[in-house]
């Protein structure tokens, strides 16, 4: 088991390395001198010289990468250019907010998507299935930023029930406040992902319902609800676990748009601010951090899958 986890992690290593190289190199790909980007346009030659020396930019490229990677591995991405705070501190501040939003969005997505998938898969091509498929298409097709705007218009501008700008309120400290602030962004993301969940699970269920073992189960005289509950669902949920994990992973770093709509203080918003300010150490740190989380959850999902699927051994 542990060996399996280690092997999966080791498989991701080249991806991580290549990606980190790309992230490190991006500063050097910026048009104009990287130092210019770092010290600002009005710097004196002395300042530039000092920065070059301080950053070690006169050393060979590979050495520079190595030292950057070395520091990054220790959690040191340097100081943010905007406010001279350590990048790591800035990122760590945002993680709880991002987690709270990502997890609640997945919960909303499951709550909406799973019943939709079940209802439509049990009567495929019936009227309910058609309606619910329409719902999935809508959930997927409506851009999250437009849906967010519509929700703000309705609940904040018209009804004035909820704030139009969502702050991060830890659910442990103030559940009601957390609900008021997280509801709209979580709903926005959740509706989107419910479309993915519903479509995927419906397809998986329909695929399993066609399988021979379903006919076998029926031929044993099992109740239809046991055929579905004990046989079909179990098989369909296996690949579904992967999708749920992947989507949650992508929310934790990738909810950039939703966070921007609601000006929610998560990791994605931090990244946007960093890009706006051309704050390269912060950009590198954010992307690296999101990458690690994303890959970490991927590995976790694989391990979970191997654990619940008896066909996979860890050998």
């Amino acid at each position: 088991m542990i060996g399996f986890v280690l092997r999966r992690l080791a498989q991701m290593l080249p991806v991580l390395l290549l990606a980190s190289l790309a992230i490190w190199a991006m500063v050097y790909a910026v048009p104009g001198s990287p130092v210019g980007a770092l010290v600002g346009e009005n710097a004196t030659p002395e300042q530039i010289q000092a920065t070059i020396a301080r950053l070690g930019l006169d050393r060979p490229m590979l050495l520079q990468y190595w030292s950057w990677l070395h520091h990054a591995l220790e959690g040191d991405f340097g100081l943010s250019i905007q406010n001279r705070e350590p990048v790591v501190t800035l990122i760590l501040q945002r993680i709880p907010a991002t987690l709270q939003l990502g997890l609640s969005a997945s919960a909303v997505g499951l709550a909406l998507g799973v019943p939709v998938a079940l209802a439509s898969a049990l009567r495929p091509r019936g009227w309910l299935d058609r309606m619910l498929s329409g719902w999935s298409a809508l959930a997927l097709g409506v851009p999250t930023f437009w849906l967010g705007i519509l929700l703000i218009l309705l609940f904040a501008v018209r009804l004035r029930w909820l704030p139009s700008v969502s702050a991060y309120v830890p659910v442990m400290d103030d559940p009601a406040g957390a609900l008021r602030n997280t509801l709209l962004p979580a709903l926005t993301l959740g509706v989107y992902v419910s479309g993915i969940f519903a479509r995927f699970l419906r397809a998986a269920l329909l695929g399993e319902l066609r399988a021979d073992y379903v006919r076998t189960a029926r031929s044993k005289g099992l109740r239809e609800r046991d055929v579905i509950g004990r046989h079909v669902l179990r098989n369909a949920l296996l690949p579904f676990v992967t999708i749920v994990g992947l989507m949650t992973a992508s929310f934790i770093g990738g909810a950039v748009v939703t966070e921007a709509v609601f000006t929610y203080p998560g990791l994605g918003r931090l990244l946007i601010q960093a890009i706006d300010a051309r704050d390269y150490p912060l950009i590198q740190g954010c992307i690296m951090c999101i990458l690690v989380i994303y890959i970490g959850i991927n590995v976790l999902v694989d391990v979970l899958y191997a654990y619940i699927d008896p066909r996979i051994d860890y050998g």
Partner: peptide
């Protein structure tokens, strides 16, 4: 490697460069 980041983040990082 392209899939290691959500598409939008990848695009943003690229445009930042």
């Amino acid at each position: 490697v392209l899939l290691a980041l959500p598409g939008i983040l990848f695009a943003m990082a690229l445009i930042a460069v």
